[in-house]
Structures are given as C-alpha cells and as structure tokens.
C-alpha cells in the first residue's frame, strides 16, 4: 500500500489567496477520486433497481407520459401542431431530450445531497458524488435515446447521416445543464428554495423551448423562443436525427463551451464553499 507522506494544513486563511494551490488541489483530488467516483456510480446503479420489478421502465415513463398527453391533445384537435416529421416522433424526441436535460440540471445537487452523510463525517471529496450522479444521468440518457430506435423503425423513418453527430450536440447542450446544476449546489444545499425554484422554473422553461412544438417564427413568443439560450440545444439535437439541418450548430457549441467553462468555475467555487457548507449541514 502506498503511504502518502504529505503534510496538509487547514487554516483560517482564505483559500482564494492561493488560487494555484486551490485548483491543483482540486485536480489532484479528482484524480485520486477516480475509483471512488466509479464505485459510487456502480453502487447507485446496482442498488437503483434492486428493489424494483419494472426496472428501467421507470426511466422511460416520464418522456412517454409527457408525449402521450400532447399526442392526446393533438389527436382530439384541442390544438394543432404542424411538424415536418410525424408529430409523435417529433414530440417523443423532444421530451426525451428535454427530460434528459432536466436530469442533468438536477443531477449535481442530488448527488451532492446524497453523499452528505459521508463527506460531513469523513474527508471525502463531495465532487465524487456530484460526478457519479452526472455519470448516472449520462447512462439514463443513453437508455432513453436507445429506446427511440424502435420508435424510428415503427414510423419507418430513416435518420440522416448527421445522426452520428448527435452525441456531440448532446454533449454541448447538456454541459450547460450540468454547469447550472453545479453552480446551484452551494446555495441549494443550504436553502431548499433553490431546488424548488429549479424544478418549477425548468417546468416552465420547457414551453419556450421547441420540445412539444416547433420554434415559432413570428410574434413576441417567437422572439422569446429564438432568444432562449436553451432553444439551440434542443433544436440541433432533434434536427441531427431528423432533418439533418445545421442552423443551430454554432449557437449550441458556443453556449455549450460557456457551460463547460462555467462547470469548471463552479467546481472551484464548490471547493471554496465546501467547509462552510459542511459546517452548516449539521452532523
């Protein structure tokens, strides 16, 4: 067993006075926590459905249920949405992407809170719980997207070659969700308001994204939809596996890159905040 003969200092000094030490400490901790991240991920994954009979069905229920409601409204002519591709396909892709996105926004805080009993007592990096929670969101997304394949076959719909770019689009789109999630941890772990706000806000946000209907072209609502920073991600992800259109590629990449940068900053901020959060989380 390797013995670390390191000396650590815990002092009242502001940690931001040594930014290099702060960032290198973060990287060192994350590198050291690789196995921990993986074992938490496996632990939660194994335990997730061990007490369940239907298992992965519960992952698919939310997008299918949302899609079913809107399909019913459409079929009963309560509303009329016109889409280039069959509407059921349109909406199922939309809700799958959106619910995965929401999953990514919520994952960091959920992961952080789930590890509370461990890192409030032992010197374990809370980032490990956050990252493994994000990994689970990745896996859940993979499962949901895979389920779309039989739906495509059912509608005899052949996706264009651009479908291979889908993972890249999803990566950039979801990274902004992850950034929001991590940024919320310091506040969200102290005050439940943040979690509540996030849930309600995101529910509303869906209606100004092209999830259940395409982007409106005109009017104030159309403008709102087009300026919404989450629109490009949803639109590009769907376009890649349906129409092959690339209009939303650049905005998605730009916003996604900002998301990546923000995620890093958020991790550094979390590290600064960590002892103060633990102090307030109780025993």
């Amino acid at each position: 067993m390797k013995v670390e003969n390191t000396t650590v200092v815990y002092s009242a000094e502001p940690s931001l006075r040594h930014p290099v030490r702060l960032v290198s400490g973060l990287i060192h901790d994350l590198a050291r926590a690789k196995e921990l991240i993986w074992s938490i991920f496996l632990r939660d994954l194994r335990a997730q459905f061990r007490q369940s009979i239907l298992g992965y069905f519960w992952l698919l229920l939310p997008p299918v249920a949302t899609a079913a409601v809107w399909l019913l409204l459409q079929s009963q002519k309560v509303l009329r949405v016109e889409t280039e591709i069959p509407y059921p396909l349109f909406i199922l892709i939309g809700t799958t992407i959106w619910i995965s996105f929401v999953n990514f926004v919520n994952a960091p805080l959920l992961g952080f809170n789930s590890g509370k009993s461990v890192y409030s007592k032992l010197n374990v990096s809370p980032e490990a719980f956050v990252i493994s929670s994000i990994l689970r969101a990745v896996l859940n997304t993979l499962v949901r997207v895979t389920i779309l394949i039989p739906v495509f076959i059912w509608f005899k719909f052949t996706p264009p070659a651009t479908a291979f770019l889908f993972p890249i689009a999803a990566f950039f789109f979801f990274s902004i969700g992850i950034a929001i999630g991590i940024l919320c941890i310091p506040f969200g772990s102290l005050f439940t308001d943040i979690g509540n706000f996030l849930r309600n806000f995101i529910r509303l946000l869906m209606y100004i994204c092209p999830v259940i209907y395409p982007i409106r072209k005109a009017g104030w609502f159309g403008e709102l939809m087009q300026k919404n920073p989450f629109t490009p991600g949803v639109a590009w992800c769907r376009d890649l596996i349906t129409t092959g259109e690339m209009t939303w590629a650049l905005p998605t990449i730009v916003i996604g890159s900002i998301g990546l940068l923000l995620s890093f900053v958020a991790f550094v901020f979390l590290r600064v905040a960590r002892p103060h959060l633990i102090a307030r989380l109780g025993m």
């Binding site: 013995v3 670390e4 003969n5 390191t6 000396t7 650590v8 200092v9 815990y10 002092s11 009242a12 000094e13 890192y119 409030s120 007592k121 032992l122 010197n123 002892p275 103060h276 633990i278 102090a279």
Partner: peptide, 19 residues
C-alpha cells in the same frame, strides 16, 4: 472535524503530517 479537514477554523491552523 477540524483536524480531519472537514471544517475550516475561523482562526488558527492545523498541520497534519502523514496519512
């Protein structure tokens, strides 16, 4: 908890050598 690095002291310092 302070010795284990979980809580940050409001003043003072802790130094620990070795695992």
């Amino acid at each position: 908890k302070v010795l284990n690095g979980l809580l940050k002291p409001d003043s003072g310092r802790v130094q620990i050598s070795g695992q």
